[in-house]
């Protein structure tokens, strides 16, 4: 009988605090890898900060902010191969940037323009999932399906702390466990689901304890520590790829920004805590780590990220307005016969 260890409760950390907590390092990561991770962090951070500005300027619609979530996304994606599949929630809307998707595509998604669609198979990144936790079974199915075909790809599904309360999370996790699907269940525990705190979401001391119930390993990691996230994901991915089945990772962080541009958290959040988390945000933490290691970062990294965004928004805005006929496109492979006359009616004919 396979033995299931209790899930870890202690947060794995690599990056120290420059004081009492010493810096660690991750086996096998070169200086180039460390800089590559930094590039990813900066790209995501820039995307996020620019998006909030674009929203204020009325250039994109409602937007789910992921400020201080970048380490979880950059660290985990860096542990994947290109063949591995990513199932993002709205919180990871820009994660496909790390797979080379143009920023304009994601910006168009938030601009409500149909060119914000993409073919998941082009990037091995599934569509952005809006209904909470409903993509977890998709990721389980993809991973299982790849395994059945003898392929080596693994999948990773991103979801929040709130998502662990949904039936779909449970069903997806259990399905993956039973089928031995090569899946990483990546929980972004930012301790809030809009206004609902983690204490109202669960009585579990740690969300990763749920792994025990599925008979799978659980890892708990500091979600603001890009290296710890990378290392934890690498371990989970290696296990998945070698037939060891799914792993649940709980990355603990704190939502230092509003849930989305339409949200005002001042009514429910602990502002002192937000300030503390903001001071300790994940990109700055990593910058200070690199500094302590004596690794210089090229200022061009930030400049390039800004350029990516300038180009992204320019390309998005240069796109012609979506034609209304798109309303009828893609709903079926064989369009319904009614669409033709309806389109004529729509065009005023």
């Amino acid at each position: 009988m396979a033995q299931v260890l209790p899930a870890e409760r202690d947060l794995r950390r690599v990056i120290g605090d420059g004081d009492a907590v010493p810096d660690g390092e991750v086996d096998g990561l070169t200086e180039q890898d460390l800089l590559e991770l930094y590039r990813s962090l900066v790209l995501l951070r820039t995307y996020d900060e620019r998006s909030v500005v674009y929203h204020r300027q009325g250039r994109i619609g409602t937007y789910a902010i992921f400020w201080n979530h970048e380490a979880m996304q950059a660290g985990s994606v860096y542990a994947l191969e290109d063949e591995d599949w990513i199932f993002p929630s709205y919180r990871e809307s820009a994660i496909a940037l790390l797979r080379g998707m143009p920023a304009s595509v994601i910006l168009q998604w938030w601009r409500g323009h149909p060119s914000g669609w993409w073919n998941p198979a082009d990037y091995n990144v599934a569509a952005i999932c809006v209904p909470i936790a409903t993509h977890v079974p998709h990721a389980a199915g993809l991973a299982w399906g790849k395994k059945l075909r003898g392929e080596s790809a693994v999948a990773i599904a991103y979801f929040g702390d709130g998502a662990t309360s949904e039936g779909a999370f449970h069903e997806g996790a259990n399905f993956a466990a039973v089928t031995g699907a090569p899946l990483v269940l990546f929980c972004n525990n930012n301790q809030w689901a809009i206004s609902t705190p983690i204490t109202a979401q669960t009585r579990a001391k740690a969300l990763v304890d749920k792994a025990v119930g599925y008979g799978i390993p659980g890892i708990r990691v500091d979600g603001g520590d890009v290296l710890a996230v990378y290392e934890a994901t690498r371990e989970a991915v290696a296990r998945a790829r070698t037939g060891g089945g799914p792993t649940m990772i709980e990355a603990v962080t704190y939502r230092a920004a509003p849930h989305a541009t339409a949200d005002d958290p001042s009514a429910y959040i602990d502002l002192a805590r937000v300030e503390e988390e903001t001071r300790n945000e994940c990109v700055g933490r990593y910058e200070r780590y690199l500094e302590r290691l004596g690794i210089a970062v090229d200022p061009q990294i930030k400049v390039k990220a800004q350029e990516t965004m300038r180009r992204g928004i320019a390309e998005a805005e240069a796109e012609p307005p979506a034609d209304m006929s798109l309303v009828f496109d893609h709903a079926h492979v064989e369009p319904l016969p009614s669409f033709e006359s309806e389109l004529r009616e729509l065009r005023g004919g």
């Binding site: 409500g112 307005p321 209304m324 798109l326 009614s338």
Partner: peptide
Amino acid sequence: YDVPYPYWQIEDAY
């Protein structure tokens, strides 16, 4: 129409 509710830039057409 018998389609998923469209992206908002073209929702008025729906």
